[in-house]
């Protein structure tokens, strides 16, 4: 089975791009779709209704959505297999900008919203810099020059990615993404123990992570970073 992991900032057009891409794949493939979000989502219902393919949602709630995705990937793959799918699309919420949801044996697709402006590629972090394919989306809302600058900024953080200009409203560009899914996406190993994340999750366990709500700085323990850049481990 092929695994495609799609990430991008909220509202960048992931679901829109995925739907049009699936439209180009459903004739030749059995596809399944999983949406991972934080608190609530309707995306799986939209995909199921539009395409009639198996679709499901998982909510990370208190957990980092990328960690939640990684932890549940094996279950997701088994579910898709039970549904008889040969391609699984996982759309992630991608809210924590320090993690990346991609594993080695997947096609990592980042849907980048050009309306966020030319500074955004440098800010969004590993889900852009470790992607195989970057879909530059919503280009219909900006000028040619702005699309150009945006794409150049993407290549500065991810020099080896493939770039496709997509339009989530009309579906243009999505036929090219479908082609890359067919040609470039590896098969996921049957033993999930052989599958690894591309990017290590950052060190971020601190007292705030486990429920401390007081802000006074001397009350905190764990791996802590000060505004001046000083980093320390405080605790046992």
């Amino acid at each position: 089975m092929k695994l495609v992991i799609v990430s991008g900032t909220p509202g960048s057009g992931k679901t829109a791009v995925v739907i049009h891409t699936l439209e180009n794949l459903v004739d030749d493939h059995d596809v399944a779709y999983l949406k991972v979000d934080c608190l609530d989502t309707e995306d799986h219902e939209i995909v199921e209704e539009r395409l009639g393919v198996p679709a499901k949602a998982g909510l990370a709630k208190d957990m980092c959505p990328d960690h939640f995705t990684a932890y549940n990937l094996e279950r997701a793959v088994r579910w898709a297999e039970e549904e008889g799918a040969d391609v699984l699309f996982v759309e992630t919420a991608g809210l924590c900008l320090r993690c990346s949801p991609y594993v080695d044996a997947c096609l990592g697709v980042c849907v980048a919203d050009v309306t966020l402006g030319p500074k955004s590629p440098a800010k969004v972090g590993p889900f852009l810099s470790t992607a195989d394919v970057v879909c530059v989306n919503k280009g219909d809302l900006v000028s040619q020059a702005e699309r150009d600058v945006f794409i150049k900024k993407i290549t500065e953080v991810n020099p080896d990615c493939k770039v496709i200009e997509t339009n989530g409203l009309t579906g243009t560009g999505c036929e090219l993404l479908a082609e890359l899914v067919e040609k470039e996406c590896p098969e996921i190993p049957t033993d999930m123990r052989d599958v690894r994340l591309r990017e290590k999750a950052p060190l971020c366990v601190c007292t705030l992570c486990v429920g401390e709500t007081r802000v006074a700085s001397d009350l905190h323990r764990g791996v802590l970073r000060r505004i001046d850049g000083f980093m320390e481990y405080r605790g046992e």
Binding site: V133, D140, S143, C161, K162, V163, I164, L176
Partner: peptide
């Protein structure tokens, strides 16, 4: 697909 080898500049209707 290589963003450094693009041959085409496409000036679309949007001028915002």
């Amino acid at each position: 697909f290589n963003p450094r080898r693009r041959l085409v500049a496409h000036v679309t209707q949007t001028m915002g």
